Simulated scan of single mutants.
Amino acid sequence: MRIGLIRHGETEWNRKALFQGMSDIPLNDTGYDQARRTAVLLEGQPWSALFCSPLTRTTQTATELGRITGLGEPTPLPDIVERSFGELEGETVFLPDGTRRLADHPTVEPVAAVLERTYRALEHVAATGASDALIVTHGTVVRLLLNDLLTVASPAINNLALTVLETDPDARHGFRVRLANGYPVAVELTHSV
C-alpha cells in the first residue's frame, strides 16, 4: 500500500512565518490556489482514499483535492494533527538575526508524542484496506516522520509537497519512504528494522 502525505496549502500565518501548531488558521487565497493546482496534478492517479487532519487548513485543502480528483469528502484523522507549539503559537519562527527559533519551550508537544500518534494514524489508514491513500497533514508532522524514517535530516516541508510511503514489514516502523517532499529517495537512505 502507498500512503501519500501532503502538507496543507498556505495560510496567512505561513506567509508571516508564525508558529501555527494547533491554532486553527484557515487557508488564504494562495493556499486555495495551491490546493486546486495540486489536485489537477493528482487527477487520474490511482489514489483511492482521502484523509486529513481535523484542522481547518487541512480540511479545506483536502476538500479541494477531493472535489477535483473525484475522491470526495475527506475522512478526518485526529492523530495526524499538527504538533502543538504551546505558548510559541502565533510567535515568529525566525529570530531577529534570521536564525530559526528552536521549538524547545516546555509547553511544546514532545517529538516522541507526535511520532507515536502519527504512526498510529498511518497504521489506521493502512488497516482500512485502501490500495493507495492520501493524507493531508502538516509540515512538522511530515518532517518529524521523515527524520525518524530516514538516515538524513529532512528539510522544511513545502506547502502541498507530496511525500510517499509504502508499507513494508521489513522497514523501520513498517513504512519505507519513496518520495520525500517531492523528491525520490534512494533505497539506501531508508532504515531497516
Rank of each mutant, 00 (worst) to 15 (best):
M1L: 13
M1G: 14
R2N: 13
I3E: 07
I3N: 08
I6W: 06
I6E: 01
I6A: 03
R7D: 05
G9W: 04
G9V: 04
T11L: 07
A17D: 14
L18N: 12
F19Q: 10
F19G: 12
Q20N: 13
M22Y: 13
P26T: 13
L27Q: 12
Y32M: 14
Y32H: 14
D33F: 11
A39D: 09
E43M: 14
Q45R: 15
P46R: 13
P46Y: 04
P46Q: 11
W47T: 07
W47V: 05
S48I: 08
L50A: 03
F51E: 05
C52K: 05
S53P: 03
S53N: 02
P54H: 00
L55T: 04
T56I: 09
R57P: 00
G70E: 07
G72W: 11
E73W: 03
P74D: 08
P74N: 12
P74C: 10
L77G: 12
P78W: 09
D79H: 09
V81T: 14
R83H: 08
S84F: 05
S84P: 04
E89N: 06
F94R: 08
F94P: 00
P96K: 10
R101N: 01
R101D: 00
H105K: 07
V108P: 06
V111T: 15
A112S: 14
A112C: 02
A113D: 13
E116S: 14
R117Q: 12
T118R: 04
Y119M: 03
R120L: 12
A121M: 07
A121S: 14
L122T: 13
E123W: 12
E123H: 15
T128R: 15
A130Q: 10
S131A: 15
S131Y: 10
D132G: 10
D132A: 15
D132L: 07
G139E: 00
G139Y: 03
G139I: 00
T140W: 04
V141P: 00
L144C: 06
L146P: 04
D148N: 10
L149F: 05
L150F: 05
L150N: 03
T151G: 10
V152Q: 01
V152C: 00
A153C: 02
P155Q: 02
P155G: 11
A156V: 10
N158H: 12
N159Y: 02
T163G: 03
D168H: 05
A171M: 06
R172T: 07
H173G: 02
A180D: 00
N181M: 02
N181S: 06
G182D: 05
G182Q: 04
A186P: 03
V187C: 02
V187I: 04
E188P: 00
L189K: 05
V193E: 07
